[in-house]
Amino acid sequence: MPETEVAARPASSAWQPRSPWEGHARPGRHGRAEGAPGLILQPRGRSGLALLIAAPGRDTELGNRLAAHLGWSLPEPGRTRIAGERGLIWAAPGQWLALAEAPEDLRELDTLLDGVAAVTDQSDGRAVVRVSGGRAREALAKGVTVDLHPRAFGPGRTAVTGIAHIGAQLWQRDAEPTYDIAVARSFAGSFWDWLTAASAEFGYVVEPGPRA
């Protein structure tokens, strides 16, 4: 990030939100310089993420409350139900990731799901990067052991897996293909190193990331 931007921050507090990708993602074209870029990497901002863990035997009640108040329905194992930047992503048996534009959008879940699910805010716990482009599948195949071929994996699908020995959850948004990949925040730097090394031979563009 240019130093001028850092200096422009309000001086009222020493504590400022910081994107997990800051200091790693450099906007611009990288890797192979010739031809159209094979991948677009877009560090995601501070969107809302929360893990919902249903209390034993309360899956149905959890689904009912989410449907009644938010119009959401629980996706089956390995599936997502996302509209725009909001929705649910299956994470494990009885567990789902809730997704929203901002962390504040998920605050109401605490009271809404009282007694039926444990809600854990992950907005600052996970770092999310959006990976798209014609060569995205080939680049990801270097570290993802899940078959991402359209025959086996497509829009609306998710996988919890390891990528280059880093625990990750990915979900496919569209057939371009576009994937969102979430890793634990402290692994953002290591994951970025792997992702850019895997993408370099195809040429990739890093879109400007969020400030926080």
């Binding site: 194992p77 390995g78 494990a92 048996p93 052991t145 899940v146 996988a159 919890v160 897996t161 390891g162």
Partner: peptide, 10 residues
């Protein structure tokens, strides 16, 4: 049964 076929390293 939840995730499909996965490498045994997982």
């Amino acid at each position: 049964p939840y995730c499909g076929a996965r490498d045994n390293g997982e």
